[in-house]
């Protein structure tokens, strides 16, 4: 799974990186954003809703930081 390291990026950069990386993932595959930014928890699901992608859920990256997983639908 493609994992975007957005640990040190301020809001809204994690979402910008997510949008830019989407075309590099095959439809049906997953990609994930790792971010400290407290807005990412709300904005990754909101981005998925607005851009019609699937929000899979939140888990933890290897270093224990929150990781937000998305499935490309289109």
């Amino acid at each position: 799974m493609l994992e975007l390291d957005c640990r040190d990026l301020p809001c809204p950069r994690p979402i910008i990186e997510l949008a830019k990386a989407l075309p590099s993932v095959v439809v049906g595959d997953l990609l994930a954003v790792v971010a400290r930014d407290p807005a990412a928890r709300y904005d990754v699901p909101a981005w998925c809703r607005m851009r019609e992608q699937e929000y899979v859920g939140e888990d933890l990256a290897d270093d224990g930081l929150p990781r937000f997983v998305v499935r490309r639908l289109s």
Binding site: P12, P38, A39, A46, M50
Partner: peptide, 17 residues
Amino acid sequence: TLEPSHVLAAMGALTHG
């Protein structure tokens, strides 16, 4: 606080921009 709005978060709305 650098925390997003609890109102927007509770509504599931986009909090940035």
